[in-house]
Design a binder for these strands. Structure first.
Lengths: 122, 122
DNA sequence: CGGAATCCGGCCCGATACTG
DNA sequence: CAGTATCGGGCCGGATTCCG
């Protein structure tokens, strides 16, 4: 990944790509709720996760934010949205197989965050 | 990490910790400039990185943001700030040994971001 | 029930000007 | 050179209301 470079040009090019990748990651996974929703869906993947259930269980989130965040995640193929044929209708959300790929990322952030809290205390 | 739980209590507790850790990580490493600065300092760790040099090389950042972000990073022990006894004075910034610990995190984000761009295109 | 629409406060961040 | 002060726009995110 650290490419050998001739007067910095190759490195700069790959660096731009990497910066864009970081930006993408932070935009898609960053913010107050996205990773929290992903982790929640993963923890409860055996259950039906309706909108209302998610709103109850993800403490503090408003309907507006939950709706918006779910749309964002769905657009990025990280979760699936299924309208159930019930009365009244319910909608079921689930993490996709591709969505599982974010879990290692969250795990990295969890580990760094835990370690950092230790470091700052010391 | 996924602790066995009795009626969910232990899992909820550890989950709260992990959520706080994620929040910490995103607050400390998130935003538009922090990781970019960290990567820049790491790439140029062999050089003297003065305020002005950083502002020139990190494209688009204003003095105000650079100043603020550097302060945040220093508070979290991720970079060091050294006032050089030159005339006029210059200040040298460098990544700390502890600061190196964020590089694997950024690498994870880079990899996920690159992979995601492929996925979305398909 | 699952949303969309609206309003609004705060802060993230940029531009500009100024200081030691 | 290395910052601060000030202003202001935009967007994140919360509260409330309304719709199918």
């Amino acid at each position: 990944m650290d490419t050998i470079n001739i007067n910095g040009i190759i490195q700069e090019a790959s660096c731009d790509q990497e910066l864009a990748a970081i930006k993408d990651s932070l935009e898609i996974l960053g913010g107050k709720w996205k990773l929290r929703i992903m982790r929640h869906l993963n923890n409860r993947h055996a259950e039906k996760n309706t909108f209302k259930k998610l709103q109850r269980e993800i403490e503090g989130i408003s309907a507006k934010m939950l709706s918006k965040e779910l749309q964002d995640l769905e657009m990025n193929l990280l979760i699936s949205r299924t309208v159930m044929d019930t009365r009244p209708i319910t909608v079921n959300y689930a993490i996709t197989e591709y969505g599982l790929s974010v879990l290692p990322v969250t795990e990295t952030l969890v580990q760094w965050g835990l370690n950092h809290r230790q470091k700052i205390k010391a």
